[in-house]
Amino acid sequence: MNPAYSVILFTTASGAGYGLLAWLGAVGAAHGRASTIAFALTSVLIALALITIGLLSSTLHLGRPERAWKAFSQWRSSWLSREGIAAIVTYPFAIAFAACWSGVIDAPNLITPLGYATAVMCVITVFCTAQIYASLKTIRAWNQKLVPAIYMIFAAASGAVLLSAISTFFQRFATPQYIIAATFIGLAFIAKIYYWNTIDNAPRTHTMGAATGLGDGVRQWEVPHTSTNFIMKEMGYVVARRHAKTLRMGCAALLALSFILMAGCIYAPVVSYLALPVILLAAWVERWLFFAEAEHVVGLFYGKQSA
């Protein structure tokens, strides 16, 4: 699949934003009012900024961005619609939580319910984002149970590293944060290795012979176009597959490095500043590969022997 940068930015930036926001909600729910207004407002603002950048970026992918609001109507059947609604519903929860948590509004009793509600909305939104891809039967590498888990783990990991960096900046060192961040990075590493192993070894059940009904000895003889068409541009991306091994190693190495850096934070919290770009880059490479490596079943009609 063509790895559109607008969609990669959307899923990674909003993933990190929702991850951070979910952790903030959980921290608020567990510990009550934030230590300082500045810390509370800055961290929620960074989360909402990342989410908003991601959502705006996703509209760049549209042919008609001015009609994007129509996407909230089909929640009964469409994961994309559900994702849009969940994203919008999260905003008022996040704002209300930030107001109570920071102390701008003096309502300590509301911090815990609003914190949990915000965190739950973040998880739901990221799950819906992943389901947009995971629900497609046409793309074997996406139609896996592991995909929503990976989206949520990456959101949690990048959000936790973000929280660590912000906490460090506000002199709020807390060792458990670093351990949580390192744990989710470790989980991301394991999940990704397992995922790559799964998609590499999953049987290619669809063949050109079966798809066309013409039997095993079929091959493309004449193409149905005079120059590259939409289907080939959108579904036939092959550049990444050539470099997939190197990029996978790179992604795994970045995850390992950010894991080590987060573990190092326990001794020198300032290292979290270094870990942040590393985990964001790892998430970017992971997401780029997620799109670029995915093969669409339509390739069978365009000359691929199996999918």
Partner: peptide, 17 residues
């Protein structure tokens, strides 16, 4: 139609352009 192209991803037959 907002041109999100998701339908073309969902079609196994490459029918939508």
């Amino acid at each position: 139609c907002i041109g999100c192209k998701l339908c073309s991803w969902a079609c196994p037959y490459g029918a939508r352009e």
